[in-house]
Amino acid sequence: MLEANDVSVIYEGGFTALAGASVKLASGAVTGLIGPNGAGKSTLFGVLAGAVRPAKGEVRLAGEAVTHHGPVWRARRGLARTFQLSRELASLSVVENVLVAKPQMRGERLMSLLLARRAVWQEEEAGLDKARALLQRVDLWKLADAPAGTLSGGQKKLLEICRALMLDPRIVLMDEPSAGVNPTRISEIVEFVQALRQEGTTFGLVEHNMGMVRALCDHVYVLAEGRVLTQGRFDDVITDEQVASAYLGAQA
């Protein structure tokens, strides 16, 4: 569904974040990216989403080479993402944060605002119903009118997930969705993801919470120093000696 082939990213200043990494997010599956801090997981997500241009390598979305298309183009073809550090739209209310993600809003066109007020209104009501359903699911609806900037860290994470899902995405890239989220809510996210996978949504997951990775991921890539160290089923991968040393090496 979505794949990166042999991509390299060198940041300004010469730091090599990715050195020829290849990953493949199979359709309808949850694919995990794990690895120590600085392994290049978030950079790889950036490359997949189009926010980071690779110096080398290729990205394919549904079989099509999309390396030279930006994030807008990819999002319109069903690729949604969340960010490692929450990027809520701080001055917008919680429900507005979700509503703004609705694709193809006629109310965002000036002509329609003048000429098709009724259609704009109906569309907005439909969007609101959907936003409400999403927010209720993560218990944020009670804060619908609060500025998103006032939410707690965990709530912002949940809000980002709702915002991404508002796109009706075919593929969702989630960057550490559990960071700062309390344990009961984490199981909520897990259920959320499982339900959507049943419906055929493809997921990419960067996560340090190994319980969550074990519960969700069909396939796991282990990244270290910008390369794919190993890949496979979670239980096989986690016993790998290289993996252990990569993690321990980063901690030492």
Binding site: P71, W73, A75, R81, R87, A90, S91, V100, P103, E108
Partner: peptide, 17 residues
Amino acid sequence: RLVRATRDDPGVVEALG
């Protein structure tokens, strides 16, 4: 709403397509 969103974080707006 979209205008205010681009003010708050243009990167997010692009990620939303």
